[in-house]
Simulated scan of single mutants.
Amino acid sequence: MKLVILDRDGTINQDSADFVKTPEEWVPLPGALDAIARLNHAGWHVVIASNQSGLGRGLFDVSTLNAMHTKMHGLLTAAGGRVDAVFYCPHSPGDACRCRKPEPGLFEQIAERYGVDLKGVPAVGDAPRDLVAGAALGCEPHLVLTGKSAGLTMGKLPESYPKDTIMHTDLAAFADFLIARKEAAEEAA
């Protein structure tokens, strides 16, 4: 199974210091939905691993989170794409849970649900915690320079990221990279 694990806020949709709390506030980043559709068409299954501490902080409830994801799924369908599953941590930072990134719990849940070893599975995010969580289970870390990383410069990676992190300007550039790499591997075989 070809699997890609994406962060949500700042990777697929616009992030907010005040949290994305409603479906109206959930706005996709330019090109992100088309990038997911292109990954799907190239045979990749896409899942999301997302911290949603707004739940634990009481900023929104599960039905509102579901409404955000319903909007996302609808927009993805219109773009010809899909996300197979959304895994999220509902806890606030003080809860000391295992599922809040940078802890690897969400990635462990994904591995268990799909019955796969995550070694080499691309994990994409806009913050160190996204990539550290995936790298703990052997995921290949990919940083997009959107959301929390929008101020970084290509090629200049802070030490807080896994050392083998691959940088991309955005999710569309990541999709281009992954699809081109797959095609090159198929041609070489």
Rank of each mutant, 00 (worst) to 15 (best):
A189D: 11
T64I: 14
P23I: 06
L6Y: 09
L76R: 12
S50C: 06
L75I: 00
A136Q: 00
A78Y: 06
E159Q: 07
V83E: 13
D176P: 02
L131P: 04
T64Q: 12
H168M: 10
C139G: 01
L137H: 01
P28A: 09
V116T: 15
V132E: 10
Y161M: 08
P122W: 03
L76G: 05
F107G: 00
G105V: 12
V121N: 14
L143S: 09
S160Y: 07
Q109I: 03
K119V: 15
T11Y: 03
A17L: 11
R57E: 05
R82K: 10
V4G: 04
E103Q: 09
K148Q: 15
E112M: 13
A49Y: 08
I179R: 07
M72N: 09
Q52D: 04
L33E: 02
H73A: 13
E186A: 12
D15M: 00
P102R: 01
T169N: 01
A184M: 07
I48W: 08
A123E: 02
K182W: 02
A42K: 05
G125S: 11
Q52C: 06
A184W: 04
P93D: 00
I110S: 12
E187H: 15
H41G: 10
I48V: 15
D170V: 09
D126S: 08
P23E: 10
E112Q: 15
G81W: 13
T146M: 07
D130R: 15
T70Y: 04
G81P: 12
T77C: 02
T146C: 08
E24N: 05
H168I: 14
G80M: 00
A173D: 06
L29F: 14
V124T: 04
G155Y: 13
L137E: 03
C99M: 13
R100I: 13
A175L: 07
Q14E: 06
K119Q: 10
G115K: 11
M1Q: 11
C97L: 05
L59Y: 15
E187W: 08
D164V: 04
T153M: 09
L65N: 01
I36V: 06
E187V: 06
L131G: 07
G115L: 08
F107H: 03
F174I: 02
R129E: 07
T64P: 06
L178P: 08
S16V: 11
L39S: 06
D170M: 09
